[in-house]
Design a protein around this nucleic acid. Structure first.
Length: 578
DNA sequence: GCCGTTTTCGGCCCGACTGTTTTCAGTCG
């Protein structure tokens, strides 16, 4: 059983224990262990084999044994018995706002309600109203929650959230009482999908009411879900939720740190503060028994007082960034100014909307020195993939354009299909005519993991392949990644000096940043590739850049930071090394 | 269920908001 499934089971055990009313700290122990496993860099199976599970903080005798059983047998009798003793619908119920473990337990025990449908019906029948700890308001809130859940279950792609956030930020900035304003939360950390926007504002105490009122009066607000003196929550018409928090100006750096998260990062940070006899919260950093916070003018100050270097928001996922900050070993993350060019650009030769020249000129306007044109290969007939004949035409056109646009350079690339058996869609003598080759999977997504892994690894071992395109084929919120053992793919990439694409299309963001962190540690090079099919698509590189940063990459490991000369010799060296 | 240069027992991160209460429990982030 793999890591992801084990994490899910440990979390579910935690929730089941809570619903059953067991010791809440016992439940928390399962959550903690789940988180520890989730961020584990090492191979879990190996850890089990070497009997080193208990080295993990938060994993003792009992949990080590349970995890070992799961890894070895794929089953856990304790979990199965627990699960069987609690109706499945109760876990679903926890997802309704206002329904926590205690309330779920109450409706189950008093009303024998086991599904969300039954819960909704009971609300309509006024049967929740008289339960202990419930009332009319609670019943209404739960009913509203069920309705909202039906309407807005999804998460949102990064561009949607960024645009909504920018709009509401501008709207709030227009209010004279707003002294400082920042987007915090997962958006600031550039997670690949977003559930809600966290908006943080510094203001004087006497202006709070006016700002909350201004916030809930925003024209895009569809529903107000929470409204107090220092915070308010709304659902926007787009379906995206937005939380507002108000703090005083002096508290702003602490609040920004706190509300940027992640929860796991903050928990670790607060624990660190405790060890230093300090208390960290959204209002300050307090020495023991002190009323006054240690003053900090910025987030950097907060981290500095905890003995840490400033940790860029993208890294705050409790993936080792705190330890690295302590040792001064944080990477110098790649920045926009480091990017000299873009790869993986489609044109009207296959399924793109713009010509080579149009794409090149837009790239020049964006300040780049080169682009790599990569249309589809012939197997991608649905995408008008290039025949050998049309490749020649395209190359002639690129040569003409290169003379015209000099010193800007258009590189002759291709996105060649990896066929189901791992061979490529062109013969070697055709592949040799390109400056570089990206190999991608576009068909037969349903192979078994072993076959898919070998298919991709075989393509990567091909001497003429320079990069692997969208390594897992996932579509965020749309299609699961295909079954592939990425650890093996990364191993092969490292051994043969192959580049892995960070596909910057916001529906893909593939390589996933969690794998990206591994890749960076292994010294693997990546390329931020917009996979652009239109002029605007070129701008998607920003999302890929965010993921490269989130994956701990410095400029020297990101191919886009290379000059044209350095690139050409790198591509040649890749081929000669085989 | 985990953990310990205060502890092998008694703690476990912290605070706002809501609704149900009449001082607080539950939920949420």
């Amino acid at each position: 059983m793999d890591k992801k499934e084990i994490v899910k089971i440990l979390e579910e055990i935690g929730r089941l224990l809570e619903i059953k009313g067991e010791n809440p700290f016992k439940a928390r122990a399962y959550y903690n262990a789940a988180r520890r496993i989730e961020v584990l860099q090492e191979d879990l199976t190996r850890l089990v084999e070497e009997g080193r599970l208990k080295e993990l903080k938060g994993v003792g005798d009992a949990l080590a044994q349970k995890i070992e059983t799961l890894v070895k047998t794929g089953r856990l009798p304790y979990y199965e018995e627990l699960k069987a003793s609690v109706p499945q619908g109760l876990l679903e119920m926890l997802k309704i706002p206002g329904m926590g473990p205690k309330k779920v337990k109450t409706v189950y025990e008093k009303l024998e309600i086991t599904t969300i449908g039954e819960l909704e019906y009971a609300c309509h029948e006024n049967r929740l109203r008289d339960l202990p700890g419930f009332g009319l308001k609670t019943q209404q809130k739960i009913l509203k929650g069920i309705e909202l859940r039906k309407k807005y279950t999804e998460r949102f792609h990064l561009p949607v959230a960024l645009e909504e956030a920018a709009k509401i930020k501008r709207y709030m900035e227009a209010h004279p009482a707003a002294q400082k304003i920042e987007i915090a939360g997962s958006l600031r950390r550039r997670k690949e999908t977003i559930k809600d926007i966290d908006l943080l504002i510094a203001c004087r105490q006497q202006d709070r009411e006016a700002l909350v009122k201004h916030f809930v009066s925003y024209s895009e607000v569809d529903a107000i879900t929470n409204q107090g003196h220092t915070k308010a929550s709304v659902v926007l018409k787009s379906g995206l939720a937005c939380d507002l928090r108000l703090v005083e100006e002096g508290q702003f750096p602490f609040a920004l740190q706190y509300f940027t998260g992640s929860a796991a990062h903050n928990t670790a940070l607060r624990h660190r503060a405790r060890v230093q006899k300090l208390t960290l919260n959204e209002y300050g950093l307090f020495p023991e028994n002190a009323e006054q916070s240690i003053p900090c003018a910025s987030e950097s100050d907060v981290y500095r007082h905890l003995g840490l270097a400033f940790i860029p928001p993208e890294l705050r996922e409790d993936f080792g960034e705190i330890e690295a900050a302590e040792k001064g070993a944080l990477p110098q993350l790649i920045e926009k100014k480091d990017l000299k060019g873009l790869f993986h650009v489609h044109t009207t030769y296959s399924d793109g909307a713009s010509s080579i020249e149009e794409m090149a000129r837009r790239a020049m306007e964006l300040g780049f020195d080169y682009i790599g044109i990569c249309d589809h290969s012939k197997a991608a007939y649905y995408a008008n993939g290039l025949s050998e004949e049309r490749i020649k035409m395209q190359h002639q056109e690129i040569e003409r354009l290169n003379e015209m646009l000099d010193p800007f350079v258009i590189l002759k690339g291709i996105e060649v299909d990896i066929l189901p058996d791992g061979t490529l869609d062109y013969s070697d003598d055709v592949l040799e005519t390109f400056d570089f080759v990206i190999a991608s999977v576009h068909s037969s997504f349903n192979l078994e993991e072993e076959a898919m892994t070998e298919r991709i690894c075989r393509a990567l071992r091909h001497p003429l392949v320079n990069m692997l395109g969208h390594p897992t084929g996932r579509l965020l919120l749309g299609r699961e990644p295909y079954a592939v053992n990425m650890d093996k793919v990364l191993e092969v990439a490292a051994r043969f000096n192959k580049v892995i694409e960070i596909n910057a299309n916001p529906y893909r963001l593939d390589l996933d940043w969690r794998q990206g962190i591994k890749a960076a540690k292994m010294g693997i090079k990546v390329a931020v590739n917009p996979d652009a099919h239109s002029l605007d698509g070129l701008n998607d590189f920003e999302y890929g850049l965010a993921i490269a940063r989130k994956s701990w990459f410095t400029a020297s490991e990101v191919l886009n930071s290379y000059s044209v000369e350095k690139l050409k010799s790198f591509f040649k060296a890749q081929q000669n090394a085989m």
